[in-house]
């Protein structure tokens, strides 16, 4: 297991986890979200081949109500 930072909190994922592994474990499949790793956008098409490293700062965002 490795530790990443997910939306501001420590989070453990498998050492070989890709972003797809992460989104599946978070039940985000089929939902509208966007992911940034270390302040770079990782486009949806790359999630399966983007492997997480210890210490990565991951942000998962979605649209919510706002003006």
């Amino acid at each position: 297991m490795i530790e990443i930072n997910l939306n501001g909190e420590a989070f453990e994922v498998a050492g070989d986890a890709s972003l797809s592994t992460l989104t599946q474990s978070l039940d985000l499949e089929g939902k509208r979200y966007a992911i940034e790793v270390n302040e770079d956008i990782i486009s949806r098409s790359e999630h399966g081949t983007y492997f997480l490293k210890a210490g990565d700062q991951v942000e998962v965002v979605q649209a919510i109500g706002g003006g």
Binding site: L28, V60, Q62, A63, I64, G66
Partner: peptide, 10 residues
């Protein structure tokens, strides 16, 4: 229609 972008509630 405007929306805000926020962290998904894990």
């Amino acid at each position: 229609v405007t929306v805000a972008v926020r962290r998904t509630n894990i």
